[in-house]
Design a protein around this nucleic acid. Sequence first.
DNA 1: TTGTACGCGTTATCAC
DNA 2: GTGATAACGCGTACAA
Lengths: 355, 355
Amino acid sequence: MTSQETPRRATIADVARAAGVATSTASVVFSGKAKVATATRERVLAAAAELGYSGPDPRAASLRRGRSGIVAVVLEGHLRAAFLDPVTTAMMDGLTDGLADLSAGILLMRDDPGESDTAPLANAPVDAVVLIGCSGRTRTSLEIVRGRGLPVVVIEGDAGEGIPRISLDNAAAAADVARHVRDLGHTEVALVTLHLDAARERGAVTPARLDAATVEVTIDRLAGMRSIFPDAPAISAAGSLIDEGLLVGRMLLADAENRPTAVLAQSDLLAVGVMRAAEELGLRVPEDLSVAGFDGIAVDGLGGPVLTTSVQPAVEKGRAAGEQVARMLRGEQGITQNLTCRFRAGTTTAPPPVH
Amino acid sequence: MTSQETPRRATIADVARAAGVATSTASVVFSGKAKVATATRERVLAAAAELGYSGPDPRAASLRRGRSGIVAVVLEGHLRAAFLDPVTTAMMDGLTDGLADLSAGILLMRDDPGESDTAPLANAPVDAVVLIGCSGRTRTSLEIVRGRGLPVVVIEGDAGEGIPRISLDNAAAAADVARHVRDLGHTEVALVTLHLDAARERGAVTPARLDAATVEVTIDRLAGMRSIFPDAPAISAAGSLIDEGLLVGRMLLADAENRPTAVLAQSDLLAVGVMRAAEELGLRVPEDLSVAGFDGIAVDGLGGPVLTTSVQPAVEKGRAAGEQVARMLRGEQGITQNLTCRFRAGTTTAPPPVH
DNA sequence: TTGTACGCGTTATCAC
DNA sequence: GTGATAACGCGTACAA
């Protein structure tokens, strides 16, 4: 019948007192930072169990250590939308790997365009920050983080000078895909891009819209494609979804007279959508229409065909970011890295149909 | 030319000294917890800017306050797998909503079956924990959390007594779907279940396997289905994926002699996979085969057909959990809730074909 | 090996 | 409206 009157939880000092040792000894028992006589340890542990003490308070420990063991990951937009993208989830996976040494937790945050009153990012007990994405809002988040003096890594976004950044050779990789399609003999090619800006409007990519575009990934991949097909018309999708690809695909393929013989999409999901649109119209892929994507993800439910695409190192991207964070936390300088995509010829591209 | 010799960051005490006020006053300027004369505030802010002080250290603040503003969400398995499931992401969305009042961050954790040496959950500076899922491992996490005396809510899992829990009427909802199919006249029905346990093996659900099953959701939905079709054969999938549904669908439909006229799947993604399998075999849905799912999510790329399913309140589930966490953090008792799914008749079920 | 004492950076409380 | 002071719970030099 232990007395449970006191509402206050036991502290390590209480445990030490109960065990008849100094608080420092008790502390060491829990941290394992030094050797403690087995008998002493037992006594401390017993006292802890008796008092219902379950280890040091992480809040106090993190103040003392100057580390909370938490890394913030800032995503753009709704979490739901972010995790709908297989590339994002793969990257998160890599990130946890890269962070494994630190055994740090991942604090999810979104850069909310709305509320600027109290940015959660400004008050979160984190040791470092990983910024993902490309919205203009990233800059604001960056300011806050730099103000706090936290290590920060940017993945595929507009980093300021001196900020380590993980990016892809988007333009070159997109050009590789386009070149493959050109070498097959295609000349009538249409492009499907990712969203151009935070507005995410679906529609023809005019020079004016392109000038106002803010999403680097989209811009770079488009540049790569246009380096091979300078005059190819492009339509922007509202997001990286099969359904979006389907909608844009319908727009692209509707007119039987001016139908392209190949469509280059900036993501695999969009490409699959375009393939669905082709299917609807009774077009065979790749006999009647070649379709290529970008990312190299495994599309659930795609089935037989292997998409011609550029395989991006999504997991590696996350892992690299995690490793840079780990470096910076060790006091070393973070390094900017530009990762390379690998072209993969699939079964969805072929020479254009002969008339 | 400001001196930037000192490696140590400025503290609120430094700012107060520079501004010629007490630290408590400076503190209040940043927290806004009390009225401060405008002139004083300006002075403090100016001093802060001068010293490069960007607000209170969250670590110190959380020690003092006893709150870190972080809620842990424990998912089972790899993050990647968890976020592949649209239900999970929808729930996470709801959770952020439910937690909105607290403006708390979400710390992602997985209950790692491997390393038991130092559970991250034991050392994370969090105010509360949300446990999701149903693996046996959940119990271990629960122990740790209870030991720390943290408020905890369990979503669709095996909570101990006294622990608030958010769940669905899985059995009843599954029975609703089955009843609909029976009322259409089907008697030859096959079932596709979610994974039975952590092993996630694909294969026929034998009585022995069912006895050893640990995933409540799977068990409950199966019970609901079997309450209508007691003898229906069932195959367990290795996960909630279209591709899994496709594989299991092939197994189920391969034998033209003993082919069921309807398949009930425990998730929409599995159902879509079964539809793909039917398509492969030249079977029309619903003319030749009726297919029903569970969840009521929007499947990207599904296209025309509307799945007959039970729509679960996934977002609401997360929101409810968030609200209970908020309650408990206010010192009130958390409440267990059982949410209700809603049957939706779609275009993928019809009377069985006549011979 | 064990104990002492101090400081980590805040904020709540209370008096002025 | 402002200031002094005392915790918050712990880790770790340093001394014994």
